[in-house]
Amino acid sequence: MIVGGVRAEPDSAAFLLVAAEGGDRTGPDLGNWRVNTGSDEQVTASLHASNKLITGGGALGYSPVLTLACRPDGEPRWSEWLQLSDAVSASRKITISVIVDGGGKTDESWSVGSRGRTLVRDGDDGIKRLASANRLTLSWRFGLLSGRGEADFELAGLSEAIGQIAASCKTDPP
């Protein structure tokens, strides 16, 4: 994949590290998902992309992080976030192209969060579209002249992670 004129390579070392960290878990197989149930404000599950985006003129690379969240007391109850290291130039809304399991591309409007490094989509419909999916690709423009970013996510363990989030949030899964 080409990002800002630089080729982005899969992050296999991070995959191995994450897989090694999860070897001693008990309970449902959450794959590479990391669930955080320690907050009264929200319960989250996060997953690093299987590819890296190159930043800093090609000197640094990072994997965007997809986070699914549920708020036990609040609206919207469910949301999803995409955390980036490079800021997008949009200030309020950004169009993200979404491909689930290699199907057709759908364009969605996401809000731009703090310092342009978090993209947010509220509502449970985004979580529903992923519930039985195996793969997710998100693509967006960083800015008018700065190219596109793309993040690929292998969603193994997602239905278990959603179930755990919903149970901790004391609600039904979307």
Rank of each mutant, 00 (worst) to 15 (best):
W78Y: 11
E75N: 12
G102E: 02
G163H: 01
A131F: 05
P173L: 15
G31C: 04
T137F: 05
I96M: 08
L155P: 03
R7A: 15
A20G: 15
R135E: 11
K105A: 00
W78K: 12
P10Y: 10
E80G: 07
G61T: 11
D122Y: 03
A87E: 03
R115Y: 01
A20C: 03
T95W: 00
A151Q: 01
S114K: 05
A13G: 06
R77H: 05
A156Q: 11
L47P: 12
L144P: 05
T137A: 15
R71N: 14
S109A: 11
P10T: 06
R121F: 15
Q42N: 14
K128G: 04
L66M: 01
D29M: 01
W140P: 07
V6Q: 09
W78S: 13
L84F: 10
D73V: 08
L60E: 14
I54W: 14
V88S: 04
G27F: 01
G163S: 11
S132M: 12
N134K: 08
T171E: 10
G104N: 09
L17E: 12
I165Q: 08
S146K: 15
T171K: 12
E154M: 07
E41V: 09
G58A: 06
A87Q: 08
L68P: 07
V100N: 00
W81N: 13
G31N: 02
S109H: 10
E160M: 14
A167V: 09
S46Y: 01
A166M: 06
A156Y: 09
T37V: 13
L84T: 06
R135V: 11
L47D: 10
E108K: 14
L144H: 15
R117C: 05
R7P: 12
P76H: 08
S132I: 13
I54E: 11
E108Y: 07
W140G: 05
L145Y: 13
A45K: 03
R117L: 03
G27T: 02
Q83T: 14
E21I: 02
L130I: 02
E150L: 04
R25N: 07
I96H: 05
W110P: 01
C70I: 08
G126P: 09
E154W: 03
A19P: 00
D107L: 05
I165W: 00
H48S: 13
T171M: 14
K170T: 13
A131Q: 12
Q42C: 07
E160I: 09
L158V: 03
Q42Y: 11
G57L: 03
G74Q: 14
V98S: 15
